[in-house]
Nucleic acid binder design. Structure first.
Lengths: 357, 357
DNA sequence: CTGAAAGCGCTTACAG
DNA sequence: CTGAAAGCGCTTACAG
C-alpha cells in the first residue's frame, strides 16, 4: 500500500468542493481558464485545509524539483558563509531550494558531491570549483563561481580590479614601496588580485611579492614573514590577498613593536567577519556576493525554465563574453593611513575625541 | 504530455532484459526474493545504462524524499561553516541530502525558513535556533542544536564544561585574577560558558565579567574594553566567550603595549579559522561538531525511518535526559603561559631555536 | 468553463 | 522466484 501524505491533497479539496482535481489544479496554478468564483472558492478551501502542494507529485509529473545544488570546495574557506547565504537568498527569492554539497577540498569528492546532487534530482547546480578543477558537462545546467580567469560559464568578482582598487588607495595615501602577500601562486584568484595590485604600482615605486606557502616550505609552518626587515628597508605598506594573511601580518608586526597604521599601512581582502572587529579595523575589499549569487541563480533558473532540453544544459551567464565580472568594493578602515603621518595622533583610550574609560 | 526524464528508468531496464519492473525494483533494492543470477544481470544492465533512480518516483510512492533541512540562525555567525559541513557530512554518509535555509537572524524569517523546507517535502529538520526561540511542533521530526540549557530535543556542546576547562587551564598556570569577556548575557550559550568559567575560579581568586554589548551601549560601538586598566590592577588572564572577542582583546592589548602571553594570558572559544593563524596562536576551546552533527542526524534518521507516523514527529536525541551534551576540547596554543613568566624568552624571529629570517 | 483520463517512476502487497 | 496491478499527487492535452 502506498504511503499517503499526512496533509490534504488536490483530491481532498476537489471532493470537498465537488469539482474535479483538474479544475482545482488549474485554479491553484492559475493556468487553465477557471471561473473567478470557483477560483476563490478553491483557494479559500485550500487555505482552510492548509494545503501544501506535494513536490514529489509535481516533480514526477513535470520533471522539475525546484531545487538547485550548491557545491562548495572547502569549508575551511571562510568565504563560505557569504556565498552560501547569498545563494540561498537569491534562490529562495524565486522559489528554489538549495541543496548543499561540500567537496572538502578533494577533487574526487567534488565529483561525488555533484553526483549526490544529481541523484537528488536537482534542476541545476551552482559550483564553486576546487582550485584547478574544470567542470565538465554534467547532465544539468551549471553555473560556476570562480575567478574571471577561469574559462567556462563563470560569474566572478573582479579580483583584478579589486587589487587595483587597493593599490590605488595606498598610492593615493603616498605609499610607493609595497609588500604584497599571497599564499599560493597557483590560485587564479590570488594571482588576479596580485596582478591587479602590481598593475597599479607606479613606475617610481616598487612592489615585492611574498608567497607564504613557498616561504613555509622553506622555513616551516607559521614562520615569520620577515616584515620588520622590509619595513626597515623602506616599505611603508603591506597588501595581503586575504584578511587571514593580513591578520597574520598584523600580529607579526605587533610583536615586532611596529604599529599599524602609524608605522605601516595594511590591507586585506574579503571583509571577513573579524575584519571590522579588530582594532584598528582592517581596510579590505569586499565581494558583492549578493550580486554574484543573483547572476548565477538567475542564469540557472532561466536555463531550467526556458530551455526545454533542446539547448545545451549549461546555463548562460554572460551573453557577450564567457564571464560575468562583478566589481569589488574597497572598505576603507583604520589600518591604512597617509605615509609618514605623525605617529599616533589619537590616544588609544579616546574615541572621536570623547574619553571612554 | 508528461515530461519524461532524460535517463533510463526501471521500465527501460525491465524491457531490455525482458522482465517486469517489479523484479527490477526488487533486484535493485534487494528486497524481494529474486534469483542471484537475475540480480546480477539486472544490476549490470543498470550500471551499463547509467541508471539513476528517480527521487520523485520514490518520494511519491514512499512519502520520503531522503532530504533533511538545515535551518541556521544567522550567517554572520562564524560557526556556521563548521556546523553546515558537519551536518552535510553526517547526512550524506547515510544517504540524506541537506537543504539549506538561513533565517538571517530574524524570528519571523525562521518560521518562513521552516515552511520553505516543509514545502520542499523534507523528511526532517535540524535547526540551530535563533536566540530565545522555542521550536514548536511542526509536522516533521526536528533536532535542535543549541545550548544544553535550552529545553527541548537538543544536542549541544557542553559549553559549561568548556568554560570550566578554560579556567582550569588558567588556574593550572597560576592565574588567580581573571577577566571574563562575554557579549550578551541573554545568550544561553554565553551564559553557560561564563558560568562554567566562574565555577572553577578558586576561592582565593577573583573573576570580573565584562559584557561587551552593555559596555557599547554606554560608550559606543567598538569602544575600548579597558583591559589595560584591569591588568594594572593585577589581573593576569583574560578569557573570552568567543575567539572574536579574544581577537578584539588581543588587538586592544597590543595597542596598549601589552604583550600576550608575556604580560597577560588570553583565551577564546570556538577555534575559528584564524585562531591558529594569528601569532601567537590563540588558546581556545573547540566544539566537537562532527559528533554533534552525527547525533542530530541519526536521531532524525531514526525518527524518519523508524516511526511510521505513529509516534510524535519529534526526533529523540537523548533517551534519559532531554539533552545530549557533547564535551568540548581545549586547544592549548601560545596565548596562555604561566603567570609571572620571565618576559619574552624567545626572539620573535627565531622559531624552535632556528633562525628563520 | 469544467471534467475524465493518461501518465510521470516507483514500491508493495498479492497472486501465481 | 517472478509478474500484473494499484496507487502515491500532480499536470496537461483533449473532449465536452
Amino acid at each position: 500500500m502506498a504511503h499517503p501524505r499526512p496533509g490534504p491533497n488536490l483530491n481532498k479539496i476537489a471532493a470537498e468542493i465537488g469539482v474535479s482535481v483538474a479544475t482545482v489544479s488549474n485554479a491553484l496554478s492559475g493556468k487553465g481558464r477557471v471561473s473567478a468564483k470557483l477560483i476563490t472558492r478553491i483557494r479559500d478551501k485550500a487555505d482552510e485545509l492548509g494545503y501544501v502542494p506535494s513536490l514529489a507529485g509535481y516533480a514526477l509529473r513535470t520533471g522539475r524539483t525546484g531545487v538547485i545544488g550548491l557545491v562548495l570546495p572547502d569549508i575551511s574557506n571562510p568565504l563560505f558563509p557569504q556565498i552560501a547565504q547569498a545563494i540561498e537568498f537569491a534562490a529562495s527569492a524565486i522559489g528554489y531550494g538549495v541543496l548543499l554539497a561540500d567537496s572538502r577540498g578533494d577533487v574526487a569528492m567534488q565529483t561525488e558531491a555533484v553526483n549526490r546532487l544529481i541523484e537528488k534530482d536537482v534542476d541545476g547546480i551552482v559550483i564553486v570549483p576546487r582550485r584547478g578543477t574544470r567542470i565538465v558537462d554534467i547532465g544539468c545546467p551549471v553555473a560556476v563561481i570562480d575567478s574571471p580567469s577561469t574559462p567556462g560559464n563563470t560569474v566572478a568578482a573582479d579580483h583584478w580590479q579589486g587589487g587595483q582598487a587597493v593599490v590605488e588607495h595606498l598610492i593615493g595615501l603616498g605609499h610607493r614601496k609595497l609588500v604584497l602577500i599571497g599564499n599560493n601562486p597557483s590560485s587564479t584568484v590570488q594571482n588576479d588580485r596580485i596582478g591587479g595590485m602590481r598593475s597599479r604600482v607606479r613606475s617610481d615605486g616598487q612592489a615585492e611579492v611574498l608567497w607564504i606557502e613557498r616561504l613555509e616550505r622553506e622555513r616551516g609552518q607559521g614562520c615569520p614573514l620577515g616584515l620588520a626587515d622590509r619595513i626597515a628597508r623602506g616599505f611603508t605598506a603591506i597588501a595581503a590577498v586575504s584578511d587571514l594573511h593580513a591578520l597574520r601580518a598584523l600580529t607579526e608586526l605587533h610583536r615586532a613593536g611596529i604599529t599599524v597604521p602609524e608605522d605601516v599601512s595594511l590591507t586585506g581582502f574579503d571583509d571577513l567577519t573579524w575584519a571590522s572587529v579588530v582594532t584598528p579595523g582592517l581596510t579590505t575589499v569586499r565581494m558583492d556576493m549578493p550580486r554574484i549569487a543573483e547572476i548565477a541563480v538567475r542564469a540557472l533558473a532561466s536555463a531550467i525554465e526556458g530551455d526545454r532540453g533542446n539547448t545545451s544544459p549549461r546555463a548562460t551567464i554572460a551573453t557577450s563574453a564567457e564571464v560575468a565580472k562583478v566589481p569589488m568594493q574597497l572598505m576603507v578602515r583604520q589600518t591604512t593611513a597617509p605615509v609618514a603621518s605623525p605617529s599616533r595622533t589619537t590616544d588609544p583610550y579616546t574615541l572621536e575625541g570623547k574619553s571612554l574609560c
